[in-house]
Structures are given as C-alpha cells and as structure tokens.
Write a protein that binds this DNA or RNA. Structure first.
Length: 908
DNA sequence: TCACCGCATGGGC
DNA sequence: CGCCCATGCGGTG
C-alpha cells in the first residue's frame, strides 16, 4: 500500500508517505495521510488511485490544468463536508481552492469556483475569527490550509458525539448544538459556505483569510409576523422568530443567490446537492434529511420563464402513512414552523400549494397537540399525491416562490437511480425500495465490489436496521476500514458478507418485517422483495467473459474492480398472450417506453430504442408506446403479482399445495396457462430466463441442454467459475439455514421423544415444513404420519446437506420426483443427517476447495448419511457446471430464501 | 361497515 | 431523557 505522493499543499509539495493511518478521519473512507513536512492531512481519496486504479482518479481542470478530485466515493464526502456544494480543490492553486467537484456531477472536471475568491489562498491558516455578525471568518497564519485535510483533522479531533453525528448527517455542527464541537470557527466555515451559494472569500495575502458569508438562499419565513403564538406554545422562542432574527442578520438578496448560482453555473452539469435551508432556523436546526436537494435545473423548471426565484425550503420522504389513503402528510415540525404560516389553533388554516405543473392545491395545514408539542400535518393531500403518482419512499420538496411567497411542491421519485450525491439517509432508503422493485436498470451500475457505492449509499440511511448494519459493513464512508479486517477474521468473502447480511436470523427478520413498530418506508413484501432482488441482482452481476477485473488489494483483501458493471443483461418481463404467443417487454433506458421483443432476444444491460435496429417501427424513442396505460399497468401488475407470489412461500411458510412454486408458475407462464390476471392480455409474467433461448449466450444457454459436454472438475472457464461461485453462495446460505433448523429440530426433539403423542409427531413433521397446524391431520394414521414425516425430513436433510439431488436450480416441481427415490429411514438418522455439517459433505465430495472459503465449523463425527446416495447423484465439481439440472430453472439458486422447493408440500 | 378524525403510543434518535 | 414522528386505534357519524 505504501507509496509516495506529493503533498497537495501548493506551497509545500513535499513527497509524503501514504502509509495508512487507520482510525483517523474515518468518515472519509477509512484513513488519511499526513504530509510529513507541513502536516497537511489528506484523506485517502486524494490517492484515489487506490480505488480507481485505471485512471488514478484524477481529472484535470479545464481552466488551469490542475488536477482535481475524481469524484470517487470517498471524495464525495468532501462535498458533504464543506458545504454540499463544493469541494476544496487542494491541487488547484489557480482556482484558489474551492471548486465544484469534478466527477460525479461535473464530468468536464472544470474548476467552477463555488466561492468568489479574492487573492490567494493562504498556505497556512491556523485559527479563524468570526465577527459578531458571523459574516466574516478570518484565518490567521498558524493553521494549515483550509483544505480538506484540515477539516478532516478537525473532525477527527472532534468528540465522538458530534463526530458520529457529523458522519450521520454529513454536516458540521454549530456550537451549542448537540455534540461537542470544539472549533466553532471552522464549523462556521462550513455552515457559512453551505448557506450561501456564492459567498465571497477575501484572501489576505497569505497571512489570513477572510470569508464573507453571502446572503442566505432566501428570505425568512414570510408567514411569520414574529408574534408569538397566542396559545403560548413555545412562547419563549417560537421557531419562526428565529427566522425573524435571521432576517435581520442575513438580509434577503435582491435575487435569490440560488438563482445567481444558476446563472453562474450555466453550461456545466448541475450538481444535485442538498441545499441547506434558507432561513436561520433551518440553517441551525433542521435536520439535514430535510434539506432540499434539488438541482438548479429542476428549480428552473419550476420557476419556468417567470422572474420568480424558487427557494427550496425542505423536503420529506413520504412515509407509508403519508402516501396512504389517510390523506395526511406529516410535516416535520421544525420545517412546518419555519416555513409554513404559524398556526395557533389545531384546526390550522388552508394552505395553497402549487405543484410543479402549476396546479394549485389547497391543503389544511394543522397540527395535533402531542406530548406538550405539536404534530403538524397537511390534510387532504391524497389527490395531489395521486396526481403526482407518488408513493411511499418518494420525496416531496417544498419550495417557495419569491417574491410572491407562494408555496410550491415538487417531488422526486424514488425510482430515480441513486446518484452519488444522494446521500441523505431517508431519501436513500427509498431509493432502494421502489426503484428496485421492477424497474430495470437500477442495479445496472452495481458492480459487485467497486461500484457498490450507490447501493450502499442507498442502504446507508435505510430504516431497516439490518440494511443499516449492512451498509455500515460496506460503506467506506461509514468510516471504519476495520470492516476489512474484521471480516477477514470472520472469513467472510465479499459475497458472503452480503449474504450474511441477507441471512439475518429468521427471528430477526420476522421481527423486523412484521414489526408493527417498524419505521420501514417499505412494506413487508417490498422488504422481502428487496432481498430477493438483491439475490436477483447477484444473478445479473456476472462478470463478462471478456472483462478482466483489476485486483486491488487492501489490507490483504483482494477487491475485484470492474470498469464496467458486470451486468448480465437487462431485465425484462416475459409475457404469454392468451393466444399462446410469447413475448418479452423491456423498458428503454432513454425514453422509458416499454418495447416488445421476441422472447429469444437477450438485451444488453443498457438498451434504448435506438438499439432496436431489428424493428424499424420501434427504432426510435419517438415511436409511440404500444401499450396503453392500462395494458402497461396490467403488465406491471402481473409482473408484481408474479413476484409477490414468488415471495409468498417465504413470507408465509405454510406452503399451499396448489402453489407449486416458482417454476410451476413460470412454466405456466411459458406454457400459456392463465395464471395471471385473467382479465388482462398478459396472462402471466416472469423474469425467469427461458430455457435455452436460441442464440442466447448466457450461462444457461451456452451449456448443452442435458448432461452432455460436462466440464471437467478442474475447469476454470467462466461458466464453471460462475457456477462454482453460485454454488458456494448457495451452500453458505443453506448452511446458515441448516444451523437454524438444527436448533429448531433439537428443540422439538425433546418434545417428540418425551411424548409419543402422534399429534406431536405430526407437529414435528409440520415443523420440518414450517407448518404449524396440528389439527389438520388428525385423521391420519400413525404410519402415514410417520412415513410422511420421514419423507419430509429426509427430503429436507438431503437438500440441506447437499446430498442427493443437489440442484443449484432446485425445482419445486421435482419434489415429487425426489420423493420417489427417498427410502424410509428412521427419524433419528434423519435428525443426524440434519447435524451433518456442510463441510463434511464437501470433503466427502471433493469440494474442499469450496469449503476452504467457507466458515470453518466443527465437523460432525457422524457418518454421512447414505440416503442421498440412493439418488445416485453425487455432486462434484464436474457436476456443477453441467447443465442437466441447471437447465431446469436458472435463477432459483438465488431465489426465495425459504426455498419452497426444499420444503415438502403439505399433503392434501 | 366504513371513512374520517383526533389523539395515543412507542421506537428511534 | 426528551423530542420527533410514523402509525395505531378508538370514537364518531
């Protein structure tokens, strides 16, 4: 890792060691380096070639030729660090320091000063003074540069409380706020620049630096008359009065500085950053998750050609109840009090709010007394929400149009692919939620390792603690590079890590999913779908044959980095018409129109109408969409139905017999059974890969259809490696579930042997299939029960341990086939099978290479069960890549966690 | 029975 | 520990 770079401090230039200093400046990616000479500190993104081996992560400023940040993952937090609008370009003296970030939102890498800078940036600046009006910040000559390093160092010195909050919120705190901020002056730098789009910096000849804070984005609450609530609420310090004070301190500019910023930034890509709130109240106290994130372009869209300026006020991610039928949108208290007219009566008052289309809505803005506080709501929002087609997880953005003071309500759909700028926790969690569900493309930019930022960012703020935990594991910004280490100890591969997180214990999962106290922005099914989709995403993430990843080693961990996301193909929806015709539908990346294809077409990950050269009638995005809105709705609905049905088994473990599983459904779809919405043309949909599409080069189709042409055990071709990798994944998951079931069975064991009650035996068997209804089979004979139990148990064990017909594409339809070959064995032995560790199996089957990468567990002394062998299907490496089972159902191996195919169906 | 209203509850921060 | 806020829930029409 050790290498040497030149200190970016323009007046220093000393080569500095890049020896990682763990535990320092963790929030920005895990480590930092210090210049030996001047002590300037740089977080690792400065040396982002670590993460971006290809181009060293640097871009050149078009103006001055200096190197700029690449906009890599870590450097993103610089934007957050500084002011959400700019990053200090440490290497760019000509531009004097503060630039919009090159990379994400500024591919040209042009230094676009976010601050007007006069003079030169000081080489060093130690202390800073804030004048009484907080308009100037002075740096004297004792400090190092005001660049990133200093900020980082400062942050690092901060106490844990504020440090944590900083990490979470991505902001610097004001003195006096929660947490201990030890250097309010520097905080002021951040906040100052954050509140002003274009503050002015006067540099004072390398000795000190004065920053004049610009005007705020907008005026204080125009609704506020400054009169305290007559009901006495918060009389001592009504929030809106703070806005009043702000008005005095920070007069409204003739024109919104935001608009100025807009003009000034014409021609460069807009950066969508969270804009800190306009008023003093918000600036100081609004949680960053309410900070409006809206691009200047969007602002201009709203304002149209009028001379009005749009002042973004706040935004809120719609909760389920917000978007639900109740029609009440809970407003963040602080926002409501800061930006909406003060109300003294619970009844509130009607509020006119214009949507982005110009349509005006009238909502009742009111509050409920709540624990000596208030809970503000907008009532009657349902029509508006529906009009904008918003759902839980989408974001509404409240702005104000000045000078009229008219309230404007915009929105941001969660389905929008997550951008690098979108780091706000609340917003992100939704990104995962709805954008993923069935819209293709969201995961397309998600390489397994190096491109995970979007996903991780999306997880970062998830309300799902598990997702949070996961993101914490993964997120380099979460500030703990130790995850690399710790995971090493756990011997978690990167994929295993992901799976591990997906494999939270069932109880935990259920508690989370079913908990009434959840604050999930996604409902239960969606949460489940999320898991499935992750797994599906893994399916889609196959390294292209021709692409070799660059391997980056960090702390003895190898990371594959792909220049292009190793995406398998574009997701599409397969449809069988009631007439029997099969077709495939996919959405254009460009115009979002749904286009029809023959089923055998495999679409590339990125596809637009223009690529549709085979079909002249749909060659252009301008071609009309074939589907009527209702047809599209049907298509999507049946797709969702399909996915929900797919989820039912795990969500509701009591598997109905009629629900013969994913494959049956898929087959039905393929065969034209009318299992979908009967009233629609699209009778069933599936994203399953059809078997052996002609001309398809996917992992399924490139293999011979039935057992021929097996690859050798030692084969390392892409197919074999991929299959092996998937097998490992599957095994790890099975192992996890196995141990869970072991515990459960052990618990039941005692009951069984303690009582010969047949009902309990039945109960056991039911438990084996996660079925808990002892009354259902009361009439069954003991023998029936026992044999059933045995069968089911053996099935479970066989499947669980990988013995017998272990099929990566386990097929529910084939459970019955399996049963035929399952001899009756004693329950004891079956339970022993359950205890047979995976490792044992792997060893016995020459799969130690797989085992070596698994968590090393205790190996059971029990001999392997032979029941599985009766199937005559030893699993070995040569078997893995072969397709005789695989062809049956590609995709199942990453499918439903509950794997209904492994659970016996409940006999009628 | 349903929709709506107003408040209560409780997890999370 | 207090506040915030998502959501549950009982009362009412």
């Amino acid at each position: 890792m050790a290498s040497s770079k030149t200190c970016m401090n323009v007046l220093c230039g000393t080569p500095i060691s890049t020896e990682w200093r763990k535990g320092w400046a963790l929030q920005c990616g895990g480590s930092a380096v210090l210049c030996d000479k001047c002590g300037s500190a740089y977080e690792q993104s400065i040396f982002c070639d670590v993460f971006h081996a290809k181009d060293s992560g640097w871009r050149e400023c078009n103006k001055c030729g200096k190197r700029l940040h690449c906009g890599c993952i870590a450097s993103r937090c610089l934007v957050e660090l500084l002011d959400r609008g700019g990053v200090i370009c440490i290497g760019c003296a000509k531009c004097s320091g503060v630039n919009s970030m090159a990379g994400d939102g500024n591919p040209n890498g042009s230094c676009v000063p976010m601050l007007d800078i006069v003079g030169e940036r000081p080489s060093t600046s130690a202390d800073c003074q804030i004048d009484s009006e907080r308009k100037h910040i002075q740096f004297d000559n004792n400090t190092e540069n005001i660049g990133l390093g200093h900020l980082l160092q400062f942050q690092n010195d901060d106490t844990k409380g504020s440090f944590e909050q900083f990490k979470r919120e991505g902001i610097l705190l004001h003195p006096g706020e929660s947490g201990n901020v030890h250097s309010p002056k520097l905080n002021e730098v951040s906040n100052g620049s954050s509140q002003a789009a274009k503050p002015v910096i006067h540099a004072l000849a390398q000795t000190n630096l004065s920053i004049t804070l610009g005007s705020p984005l907008g005026s204080p609450n125009p609704f506020s008359d400054g009169v305290p609530d007559e009901r006495g609420y918060n009389k001592a310090s009504p929030p809106f009065q703070q806005g009043l004070r702000s008005r005095h301190l920070l007069p409204k500019p003739p024109k919104s500085t935001l608009a100025q910023g807009l003009e000034g930034s014409m021609g460069i890509p807009q950066i969508c950053v969270a804009r800190p709130p306009a008023e003093g109240r918000g600036r100081n106290q609004l949680l960053p998750r309410y900070w409006p994130r809206i691009t200047d372009q969007e602002l201009q869209q709203i304002s149209g050609d009028t001379n009005s300026t749009i002042v973004p006020l706040f935004e809120k991610v719609l909760s389920a109840s917000d978007a639900g039928r109740i029609g009440r949108l809970v407003l963040p208290k602080a926002c409501a009090e800061a930006y909406f007219p003060p109300i003294s009566q619970p009844e509130g008052l009607p509020l006119r709010i214009q949507d982005v289309k110009g349509k005006e809505w009238v909502f009742q803005f009111r509050f409920w007394p709540n624990n000596n506080s208030r809970m503000y709501v907008l009532e009657g929002v349902t029509p508006c929400i529906q009009s904008m087609q918003l759902q839980a997880g989408d974001t509404v953005i409240f702005s104000r149009m000045d000078p009229e003071g008219k309230l404007v309500m915009g929105f941001r759909k969660a389905s929008k692919p997550i951008t690098m700028q979108e780091t706000q926790p609340s917003a992100i969690s939704n990104g995962v939620h709805s954008s993923e569900s069935f819209f293709p493309g969201v995961f397309e930019n998600l390489p397994i390792i190096s491109g995970y930022s979007g996903l991780l960012q999306s997880l970062k703020g998830s309300n799902d603690p598990h997702l949070n935990a996961l993101s914490k594991h993964f997120n380099p910004n979460s500030g703990d590079i130790s995850w690399l280490k710790s995971e090493k100890h756990d011997d978690q591969t990167r994929k295993g890590l992901l799976l591990q997180s997906l494999q939270v214990p069932e109880k935990k999962r259920l508690r989370n999913i079913g908990s009434k106290s959840k604050r999930l922005l996604i409902d239960n099914l969606d949460a489940l779908e999320l898991r499935l989709s992750w797994e599906e995403a893994q399916d889609l993430l196959c390294p292209p044959l021709s692409v070799k990843p660059s391997i980056v080693t960090i702390d003895d961990h190898d990371f594959e980095e792909y220049e292009e996301p190793p995406v398998f193909g574009k997701r599409s929806i397969f449809v069988v018409r009631s007439t029997g015709g099969q077709e495939q539908w996919a959405q254009c990346d460009s115009c979002s129109k749904w286009r029809r294809f023959p089923v055998h077409i495999l679409l590339p990950p990125k596809w637009a109408c223009g690529d549709n050269s085979l079909d002249q009638s749909r060659y252009s995005c301008s071609a009309p969409e074939e589907l009527t809105p209702s047809e599209l709705e049907n298509l999507l609905r049946s797709h969702i139905d399909f996915k929900k049905r797919k989820m039912v088994p795990s969500y509701r473990p009591i598997q109905e017999h009629e629900s013969s599983g994913l494959d049956a459904l898929a087959n039905a779809a393929i065969l034209g059974d009318n299992v979908g919405d009967p009233g629609t043309t699209a009778v069933a949909t599936t994203t399953r890969h059809p078997r052996h599409r002609p001309g398809c080069s996917c992992i399924v189709c490139i293999q011979p259809p039935s057992g021929k042409g097996k690859h050798k055990p030692t084969c390392t071709c892409n197919v074999c490696m991929t299959v092996k990798r998937r097998f490992k994944t599957l095994m790890m998951r099975k192992k996890k579930r196995q141990s869970e079931r072991e515990a459960e069975i052990a618990q039941r064991n005692q009951q069984i042997w303690g009582s010969k009650d047949e009902a309990e035996v039945d109960s056991l068997s039911k438990h084996a299939s996660l079925h808990l209804d002892p009354s259902e089979n009361e009439t069954k004979s003991t023998n029936e029960l026992e044999s059933k139990c045995q069968n089911e148990n053996s099935l479970n064990k066989l499947s669980e341990t990988g013995q017998g017909n272990l099929d990566l594409n386990s097929h529910p339809d084939r459970v019955d086939e399996l049963r035929v070959g399952v001899p009756l064995v004693s329950m004891t032995s079956l339970l022993q099978v359950a205890n047979l560790p995976l490792e044992t199996y792997l060893k016995q089957n020459g799969l130690t290479s797989l085992m070596s990468e698994q968590e090393v567990g205790s190996v059971s002394p029990l001999p392997p069960q032979t029941t599985g062998d009766s199937e005559g299907q030893h699993l070995d490496d040569s078997h893995l890549p072969s397709s005789n089972e695989r062809e049956s159902s590609e995709g199942e191996e990453n499918g439903d966690p509950s794997e209904p195919d492994l659970s016996p169906n409940d006999p009628q």
